[in-house]
């Protein structure tokens, strides 16, 4: 979910990540229920398939029909970097950040309430900011935990927020688990006032 837009994320055999409006243009079915085959995404409802660029590639009810070019899934810009998937806000013009080093994804944790800022998030984790990447992502260090942590959050407003972490590919299993537990603990820090 980006800025109130429901997004379907998928990765084809070619490894490319794609972020589309979560809605089949035919009858509005969420594409996140679809099935990835090769480099196409097939809608669960009527089997309409879409190629990697979002163009409709097949309508099974009419096997001989070449789908009109007007049938397209709406695409957002998406990229892989630092073990995270980045999706651009509709109005965003800059490229996804390129993050140096070899990172592996660690955790994605849901919290009830988004932190007001990166600083608040880092404080909540007991982390020190090393370098800021965007307003919502930074490299941090936590005393007692070996290595750096890539930390980001996605504010989903009334749906709370997601916290994402990556660790260096060289991180030990112990370090990875320590970071995972730090992420989990954020649930207690950023609780809804009327906690569910």
């Amino acid at each position: 979910m980006i800025a109130d837009n429901d997004i379907a994320l998928w990765r084809g055999e070619d490894g490319q990540i794609r972020a589309w409006e979560n809605r089949c243009p035919h009858r509005g079915m969420r594409l996140s229920y679809g099935i990835v085959r090769g480099n196409t995404l097939t809608c669960l409802y009527h089997g309409w398939s879409y190629d990697g660029a979002g163009a409709c590639a097949g309508i099974p009810a009419h096997p001989d029909l070449t789908p009109p070019k007007t049938i397209r899934a709406k695409a957002y810009r998406a990229a892989d970097s630092g073990g995270f998937i980045w999706v651009a806000n509709p109005g965003e013009t800059t490229a996804a950040p390129s993050i140096d080093g070899d990172w592996v994804p660690n955790r994605s944790v849901h919290i009830d309430q988004a932190p007001a800022s990166l600083n608040e998030l880092a404080d909540g984790m007991g982390a020190g900011l090393m370098s800021k990447i965007t307003d919502h992502a930074a490299i941090v260090r936590v005393p007692g935990v070996e290595g750096e942590i890539l930390l980001a959050f996605l504010d989903m407003k009334e749906h709370g927020a997601m916290i994402h972490t990556s660790v260096p590919a060289s991180a030990s299993e112990d370090a990875a688990i320590a970071v995972s537990k730090l992420s989990t603990r954020l649930r207690q820090v950023f609780k809804a006032s009327s906690a569910a």
């Binding site: 009858r27 079915m29 229920y33 009810a61």
Partner: peptide, 24 residues
């Protein structure tokens, strides 16, 4: 039911510009 609960929007659009039908 799983399809019906995951169609967006939940109300039925009558405007032909919104959802694209075919002969079927």
């Amino acid at each position: 039911r799983m399809i019906l609960e995951n169609q967006v929007p939940r109300k039925l659009p009558l405007d032909p510009r919104w959802e694209l039908p075919t002969r079927a």
